[in-house]
């Protein structure tokens, strides 16, 4: 890669100038206290050590300790209590609802993401950048407000609430509200990963396929989809993590009906507010595990994409 050649270029100047004796100040190399050569574009070793130490201390205080605390608190009362927290009927129903919400929201936003990317990347139309901005809009809306807007629409004192109530349809403080709020907060995830990639790839390959007689669907399944599969997977991983973990928006619309409208994060909150800390942290550890798996998958996809990219850059041998 380009970076590598520059660095080795820098090293070359070391070999040229690394003659023993006085090296004038301001040259590209200096000797440090240990008598070892230091590139002028490197920090002094104590600066470097200070930066690395501060970074590790900061990350430990803010990230690592809280993460470890989840599992420590969860296991504080022993393994039996830990596993009992999951077999509790309310915990099981929270797990079921969380899975149900993800199973509905992820595919819906996946289909939307693909449709939006196809329309935006393969065709020219006025208002395109406006549309992309609107798709990103839910990211700019805070979780609580994302829940609030559905209460204003469907709540008993909202616009459609009384009318829906006359047909005995309940959305707020019921499962549909939880699903709608989750759909809103996870809306952009797939689209914002796939749109830029499809735009970058252009439509030459699709045009070739169509001109060779492929139908629209064949082109999509055999050409477009394989080209964007990693970005798609990346979007789905992030979308799923948020769908299963959303708290603020769901908190507003759910009503916390135990065994009915409680998702896992809401179940954590209830247990915690009842001072049932061991169970709260046990359920939290399940969500933390999900987050760690998400990060691992995400890193794996990133690594895979980088490798494919580097392979594509290498000249054929």
């Amino acid at each position: 890669m380009v970076d590598g050649t520059e660095v080795s270029g820098g090293r070359m100047s070391v070999t040229v100038q690394s003659l023993p004796g006085a090296i004038p100040k301001g040259s590209l190399v200096e000797t440090n206290l240990a008598g070892r050569l230091r590139l002028a574009t490197d920090e002094r070793s104590w600066v470097k050590a200070l930066l690395i130490t501060s970074t590790l201390v900061f990350l430990t205080l803010v990230l690592f300790v809280p993460l470890a605390a989840i599992f420590a608190e969860a296991l504080r009362k022993g393994v039996a209590v830990y596993f009992a927290s999951f077999t509790d009927a309310h915990a099981l129903s929270a797990i079921r609802l969380t899975l149900l919400v993800a199973i509905i929201c992820v595919p819906l936003n996946l289909v939307f993401g693909l449709a939006a990317s196809w329309a935006i990347a393969k065709f020219q139309f006025p208002g395109k950048s406006m549309l992309i901005t609107l798709i990103d809009l839910p990211f700019a809306v805070s979780p609580v407000i994302s829940g609030l807007i559905f209460v204003l629409l469907f709540g008993l004192r909202g616009w459609l609430g009384p009318w829906l109530d006359s047909y005995h349809i309940q959305i707020i403080f019921a499962v549909p509200g939880v699903i709608l709020a989750t759909l809103f907060v996870t809306f952009p995830f797939v689209a914002r990963e796939v749109i830029p990639l499809m735009q970058e790839q252009g439509s030459d390959e699709e045009l070739a396929a169509v001109s060779l007689g492929a139908s629209g669907w064949q082109t999509f399944w055999r050409v477009t989809l394989p080209n964007v599969k990693w970005a798609l997977l990346y979007g789905v991983i992030l979308c799923n993590a948020r769908a299963m973990g959303e708290f603020g928006a769901v908190n507003v619309v759910s009503g916390h009906v135990r065994g009915k409208t409680n998702t896992l994060p809401l179940h954590v909150e209830i247990l915690y507010n009842e001072y049932n800390f061991a169970a709260a942290f046990a359920v939290a550890s399940l969500l933390a595990l999900l987050a760690l798996i998400t990060l691992a998958l995400k890193s794996a996809v990133e690594w895979r994409v980088r490798r494919e990219f580097e392979q594509a850059l290498e000249p054929p041998t």
Binding site: L264, V268, T294, L295
Partner: peptide, 8 residues
């Protein structure tokens, strides 16, 4: 912090 549910 992106991946961990905020309640956790």
């Amino acid at each position: 912090p992106f991946a961990l549910p905020t309640a956790v």
